[in-house]
């Protein structure tokens, strides 16, 4: 069964003539981790903002657990837990006040919220600072609080935008574990990323978006089989238009990965 169905989603920002997202369709099924890949400015965040109700949709439809985000937003949103890329939060609150607020809004009982939040606070080493104001937290700490806030109601669909940037190796590992566990319980995870190794490790299926258009969707193995390139990185680079010679160079230097993601496209032109 599909937890999320996107069909013919198109988004044009009010102050722009370009389509940020251009007629994309795909499903996220129950129990899977779904990776959403694409270079900078491809439209990943825009798509995610449409799914979570932050942006009004220009055309097409999105439904979560059968509820349309446009016609039945409250029911749809009740099934989502969202971790944004910029970790926007109410920084004036303490971590506990923030978790409490999220739990109240999603109708989570007192016992449930205590069990879930305390477990994750322990996991992320945040139990000691839970009564401090969020504005005093580091980048990574804020992100972890975001994660806890997003999971406190055990959502059917957990959406994360660039979740792994800025996390230390341990936290990054814990987060990946959490994503897998969340799916084992019959829920789904949908996240965007440029970190290809991570995507290769945790995702059941992926979609690649470039310039607002969906380039391919499917099983990792399926995609690899279809394409002449052998690694996800090669596929990604050939789709997003890096020339052959540079492509070779990139394969030789895997550590360069992240750097490429940030600067690659612009610099190679």
């Amino acid at each position: 069964m599909a937890i999320m169905q996107i069909s013919h989603l198109t988004k044009q920002y009010k102050n722009s003539s370009k389509l940020a997202v251009d007629d994309i369709s795909f499903d996220v099924k129950e129990g899977e981790v779904f990776g959403f890949l694409g270079p900078n400015g491809a439209g990943k965040s825009t798509t995610i903002k449409c799914i979570t109700g932050i942006l009004p949709i220009t055309e097409g439809s999105i439904s979560i657990c059968g509820h349309s985000i446009v016609d039945d937003p409250i029911q749809a949103k009740l099934n989502i837990g969202f971790v944004p890329d910029n970790h926007q939060m109410y920084e004036q609150l303490t971590a506990r006040e923030y978790i409490n607020f999220m739990a109240d809004i999603y109708h989570v009982g007192k016992e449930d919220r205590k069990i879930r939040a305390d477990k994750m606070l322990e996991l992320f080493d945040l139990a000691k600072v839970v009564d401090d104001q969020i504005s005093t937290f580091s980048h990574g700490m804020k992100q972890k609080i975001c994660v806890i806030g997003a999971l406190v109601h055990n959502p059917k669909l957990w959406i994360l935008d660039e979740p792994l940037t800025g996390l230390d190796p341990k936290s990054s590992f814990e987060l990946k574990q959490l994503m897998k566990e969340h799916c084992k319980e019959g829920n789904s995870v949908f996240f965007s990323s440029h970190m290809l190794e991570v995507v290769e490790k945790v995702c059941d299926r992926i979609s690649i978006i470039n310039n607002g258009k969906l380039v391919m969707t499917g099983d990792l193995d399926e995609i690899k089989a279809k394409s002449s390139d052998s690694s996800l990185e090669e596929i990604f680079l050939s789709i997003t238009g890096v020339k052959e010679e540079e492509n070779d160079f990139a394969i030789n230097d895997k550590a360069d990965n992240e750097f490429k993601d940030v600067f690659g496209d612009e610099q190679s032109k």
């Binding site: 609150l93 506990r96 409490n100 607020f101 109240d104 007192k110 401090d132 104001q133 005093t136």
Partner: peptide, 29 residues
């Protein structure tokens, strides 16, 4: 920035309804 005030009070989770949660958020923010 921010308050690092560590109080000795043991903080606990509290539950309230959506309206009250929204009002409290507004006031705190």
């Amino acid at each position: 920035g921010g308050s690092n005030a560590k109080t000795n009070v043991v903080h606990e989770y509290t539950q309230s309804n959506v309206t009250k949660a929204l009002i409290m958020r507004e006031i705190k923010v």
